[in-house]
Design a protein around this nucleic acid. Structure first.
Length: 403
RNA sequence: GGGGAGAUACCAAAGUGGCCAACUGGGGCAGACUGUAAAUCUGUUGUCUUUCGACUUCGCAGGUUCGAAUCCUGCUCUCCCCA
């Protein structure tokens, strides 16, 4: 195995990172791997409680992919065992524990999605129940004895929760230890994590030292800010862009990103080469409109292809900018007869209840073939000639035809 | 082990017998506007109902009352203080 020179590797590795602890050990490890031809073992733990990956997750997965491309060995740990504990990291509340069946199901989904970013062939997948599940109670106590309470409660989220009178279960203290034990077991050289994982990654270092291993280097990536421009991207804040969202949605949501984030997104989640970044930064400042379309096009292309991305762009231009009807609209065949508009809106799934449908009409959000309908009592007659486009809100289109 | 506080809609948080389907803020949705699905402004935000109105909802289960989110009893969960 031959590797790029240290400097070149570092350039790739350091793209977007917030912190490398410690950098000199990383350089040392890289030099050694070049000398011995032995790839570094790069570990990434994943949480199988939330299988829907979004662009926020892609930050760290892309970093792992970059290590793969540099010739290093990627280890993806499915935290099946730790998921049964519930991970408190960065959460206000403790997560519910899952059953093994749910976890295995989630882990599969996770890997399927992660494969769109990682080189799946070259990724070693391990389940931490393999070793954690074999520990008996005295092993656990011995592990727990290696850390002190004072060090545990250094962690911000524990402190905050404690001050806010929120419950912290004892087992939550075991989570960082379990994750650290993963590093010991796998003899990892590098562990990747979000900035919020810093504490857990450092525990891994400590436990490796106690075990007289060479400690891992901790590499933290920033948390990607979501489409709202304030909170980190997360499903619970509804500011996320899923990696398997339809291309049109992906494109549209990317345009919603605040201008200040355009460059960050390029840096962290796009595959544009490093030497193009400065020009992008300049464009993002001078011409945010087009830079953002470039971003949307780039990211959509990464998860689909160039043509699909282009189509998404046209779809957006047409529906949002020109307020035109999109090209391909789902058809909703109806049986001949007379329907109340409210019922029709609900039955095609454009509103969850009749009340909601009524409200949408009253607020002027409903139109048929471009003509706004404001009368709540409108009746629609369906016969063989029927063919019109029902629009509800900004984005819901449906062609109503006779069955 | 002892004492105290609390659980309200998606989230936060008022309400302490009828004026409560429940103040307010956030979020969501819609409209206007916009390069944008951003920002801003306006409206809206339990279900059924054209209106009137009816029904379900304030941790869970019972009870008191003409009437309960509000009072009583039991249960579950959480937090704080003392030990």
């Amino acid at each position: 195995m031959s590797f790029l020179p240290v400097e070149q590797q570092l350039e790739v590795i350091k793209r977007g990172v917030t912190e490398i602890i410690p950098e000199n050990e990383l350089i040392h490890k890289l030099k050694r791997s070049i000398k011995t031809g032995k790839p570094l073992r790069v570990k990434l733990g994943c949480d199988p409680t939330r299988p829907d990956l979004h662009l926020g997750h892609s930050v760290i997965l892309r970093k792992l992919r970059q290590f793969q491309d540099l010739g290093h060995h990627a280890i993806l740990i499915i935290g099946d065992f730790t998921a049964t504990i519930g991970d408190p990291t960065g959460q206000k509340k403790m997560r519910p524990s899952l059953t093994m069946d749910e976890i295995m199901e989630n882990a599969k989904t996770y890997f399927d999605q992660a494969s769109r970013i990682l080189d799946a062939e070259k990724t070693e997948i391990v389940y931490n129940s393999e070793w954690l599940g074999k520990m008996n109670f005295s092993d656990v106590i011995r592990l727990a004895s290696k850390y002190t309470l004072a060090r545990m409660i250094e962690r911000d989220d524990f402190t905050n929760r404690y001050e806010n009178n929120e419950p912290i279960a004892l087992h939550e203290f075991l989570y960082p230890l379990a994750q650290g034990q993963d590093s010991v077991h796998l003899k990892s050289d590098i562990e990747l994590g979000g900035q919020d994982q810093k504490f857990n990654l450092l525990v891994g270092r400590d436990l490796q030292k106690i075990d007289e291993q060479e400690p891992q280097v901790c590499l933290m990536m920033p948390l990607l800010v979501g489409t709202d421009g304030s909170a980190k991207m997360s499903k619970s804040y509804d500011n996320y862009i899923g990696i398997d969202e339809p291309s049109n949605d992906m494109y549209g949501k990317l345009l919603k990103v605040p201008d200040e984030l355009i460059y960050t997104y390029f840096e962290l989640i796009s595959d544009v080469p490093i030497d193009e970044l400065p020009a992008i930064k300049e464009k993002a400042e001078k011409d945010p409109r087009n830079a953002k379309h470039d971003l949307a096009l780039t990211i959509t292309r990464m998860y689909y292809d160039a043509k699909t991305a282009q189509d998404a762009r046209e779809h957006f231009e047409k529906t949002i900018i020109k307020k035109d009807v999109p090209d391909d609209i789902p058809e909703f065949p109806q049986q001949t007869g007379s329907y109340r508009l409210i019922e029709l809106i609900r039955s095609v799934g454009f509103a969850p209840s009749n009340g909601e449908a009524r409200r949408l009409i009253q607020q002027g959000g409903v139109s048929a073939d471009g003509n706004q309908i404001k009368d709540v009592n409108t009746e629609i007659h369906i016969d063989t000639e029927t063919d019109f486009v029902l629009k509800v809100g900004k984005r819901k289109f449906g062609r109503i035809i006779c069955e």
